[in-house]
Design a protein around this nucleic acid. Structure first.
Length: 317
DNA sequence: CGACCCACCCGCCATG
DNA sequence: CACATGGCGGGTGGGT
């Protein structure tokens, strides 16, 4: 695993926990794990820890798997030495795993071009914009594409590392390891259930229309209704949506409805069918289908995960 | 699950 | 000419 200046600690800690501890009672041999600091002799991790590099730089050249836990800053140019090390490891056939914003290092090394990849949902759009050749999927916890694994933010590091153990040693070993880590062996749904949609760019023309749309979701709003309210043709409306929001009117409506449904599932005890109607879905079945496709879990499962207050009330009572 | 229907949406072109 | 608009056709994908 590589660490570089300014890197956060949690993402780096997870591989240490999974691969760095001798777990030969689960599978033997376990992993030979090494942390390589790039840059100066000492590397600052998070704001509080100073990591002193050992003389293990050579491990970079012989590792079967190279892990890039995160990067210090997604907006800046990635450290050339780190990027070159990733590229070299990839070229000699090593497996590569990135966690969270580490995907930006992999992308800078050019090894994500033409591949499916993911990163923290807050950075997904930027990754896709800066590296158009990368097929970014912001909805999943991790993706393996031909020996290159990328994973979502922070806690998804656990999912990705468990995935590697599953591939290397089988599902049984991975499940037992998950027990030791006190974490689910496999999480239902992707990171889509945790992400928040980005605020749309404030567009002078669109803003009033979007506000109006948000207030009239409960009806059976259609593309034609939006066009009529905005006094433009459907064709023009579609063009403006693609231009300003990067999506079509109906898809936008759908996202609004799903988001409203999420809020109601979290904050109320209203039945799912009631929520479906109130959010403007044509039918409860329609909402379930769209919800599952977009969020990755059913409305019921989503509520069980996020409606913690009612659980606490029941537990207390 | 297949069938049917219709809204959607994108390429294309004419118009202003 | 650049640009935005509106209408048309048709493939398609979701809903019943």
């Amino acid at each position: 695993m590589t660490v570089s200046d300014g890197m956060p600690i949690f993402e780096a800690a997870v591989p240490c926990e999974v691969f760095g501890i001798d777990r030969s009672e689960l599978a033997s041999p376990w992993y030979r794990f090494s942390v390589v600091g790039l840059g100066s002799d000492s590397v600052r991790v998070a704001s509080w820890f100073l990591l002193t590099a050992g003389d293990n730089r050579a491990d970079l050249d012989r590792a079967d798997t190279l892990i890039v836990p995160a990067c210090a800053n997604v907006h800046e140019t990635q450290p050339p030495e780190l990027v070159a090390a990733v590229r070299a490891a990839y070229d000699r056939g090593a497996r590569i795993l990135s966690i969270c914003s580490g995907a930006f290092v992999l992308a800078a090394a050019g090894i994500l071009d033409g591949r499916r990849a993911t990163t923290h949902w807050m950075h997904a759009r930027e990754l896709a914009q800066r590296y158009p050749e990368v097929n970014v999927d912001p909805a999943v916890l991790y993706i393996e594409d031909n020996n290159v694994i990328t994973s979502a933010g922070t806690a998804a590091a656990i999912d990705a590392c468990l995935h590697m153990v599953r591939v290397d040693h089988g599902a049984g070993v991975a499940a037992e390891l998950a027990r030791r880590l006190v974490t689910p062996p496999h999480r239902q749904g992707g990171q889509a259930q945790y992400s928040r949609p980005e605020q749309p760019p404030t567009d002078n023309w669109l803003a009033p229309l979007l506000d109006w749309t948000d207030e009239h979701l409960h009806g059976s709003l259609m593309t034609a209704d939006l066009a009529a309210h905005a006094h433009v043709s459907i064709r023009t409306l579609e063009r403006r949506f693609t231009h300003s929001l990067g999506t079509s009117p109906l898809q936008w409506l759908l996202q609004l409805r799903i988001r409203r449904a999420q809020q109601l599932l979290e904050a109320t005890d209203q039945p799912v069918d009631w929520i479906a109607t109130s959010c403007g879905f044509g039918s409860p079945a329609s909402m379930r289908a769209h919800f599952a496709k977009s969020i990755g879990v059913s409305p019921g499962a989503y509520r069980r995960t996020f409606r913690t207050s009612s659980y606490n009330e029941r537990a207390a009572g």
